[in-house]
Simulated scan of single mutants.
Amino acid sequence: MLVLRSLLFNIAFYANLIARLVLYLPLLALPRPWLMAAVRDWARSSLWLLRVIAGTKAEFRGLDLMPAGGCIIASKHQSLWETFALLTIAKDPVFVLKRELSWLPFFGWYALKARMIPVDRGKGAPALAAMAKRVGEEIAKGRQIIIFPEGTRRPPGAKPAYKYGVVHLYNTLDVPCLPVALNSGLYWPRRQFIKRPGTIIVQCLPPIPPGLSRLAFRDRVAAEIEEASNRLIAEARQTGGTPAPAHAGVA
């Protein structure tokens, strides 16, 4: 049954995505807010399909902690799930993403129209400077910058590998940073076909105000996200569902 439900969900998920990529093409000629509203509707529909077909629910905690106006949202990254689910909780989100994704047909067109921010991770400091400039422009418009500080998906419980990008943004911009913990990798594991029933939990943590030193911010944002994510993993194992095994290092 788990395999069948996962198969049906994957078919529905990608059919829904492809259909909307085509249906939304006229929005490329309209103002950006129209496209953002449509993208959020797609994200909500994907969460609905996941809940109805695969039995995987979503619970968002601490949304009242979201700063008003422009901010950095620094999220744990375990799964493809949060790349669309986080679109539903921010007022006007913008992702920092790998430059190569902006080259893709359809996806790249929409990313550019939505003013997502591509970064060439191979260029080091110049790429960080260019990213910070673009982020500053979007922050000034009151948007929320969503960044995955580890840069790529990490299995639940894996040793954290935080990059310098989020530290550079925090040090450059005079805005708060909202740490976000989650346990999505237990139910939508990276590079796996299976989608497991249960409840994915996203926990927004108290914002980190601007003004900390680089070292203090780096240690604080990593510690808070990791500690909260580990708690969510432990909670998932105590409350039922069929989560995937966590990486070695997490009980």
Rank of each mutant, 00 (worst) to 15 (best):
M1Q: 09
M1F: 08
V3M: 12
L7Q: 06
F9Y: 15
I11A: 13
I11Y: 04
A12P: 05
Y14G: 04
A15G: 10
L17H: 07
I18K: 03
L21T: 07
L21V: 11
L21Q: 06
Y24Q: 14
P31H: 05
M36R: 01
M36S: 00
A37Q: 12
A38F: 00
L47R: 11
W48I: 14
L49Q: 15
L50I: 13
V52C: 13
E59D: 15
F60D: 05
M66K: 10
G70S: 06
S79P: 04
L80M: 11
T83Y: 01
T83W: 01
T88M: 03
T88R: 05
K91E: 15
S102Y: 03
L104Y: 06
G108A: 09
L112D: 12
L112I: 11
D120F: 03
A125V: 15
P126H: 11
P126V: 12
A127K: 02
L128E: 10
L128Y: 09
A130E: 15
A132Q: 10
V135G: 04
G136N: 07
A140F: 01
K141P: 00
T152P: 02
P155M: 07
P156K: 05
A158P: 01
A161F: 10
K163Q: 15
V167Y: 00
Y170S: 03
N171H: 15
D174R: 13
D174T: 12
C177M: 10
P179H: 04
N183V: 05
Y187Q: 07
F193A: 12
F193R: 11
I194V: 15
K195F: 08
P197I: 14
I201R: 13
I201G: 00
P209H: 06
P209G: 06
P210L: 05
G211I: 12
S213Y: 02
R214S: 15
R214Q: 13
A216L: 10
A216D: 14
F217T: 09
R218D: 11
R220I: 12
V221L: 06
A223W: 01
E224R: 11
I225E: 04
N230T: 10
G241P: 07
T242N: 13
A248Q: 14
G249A: 10
V250F: 13
A251F: 07
A251C: 07
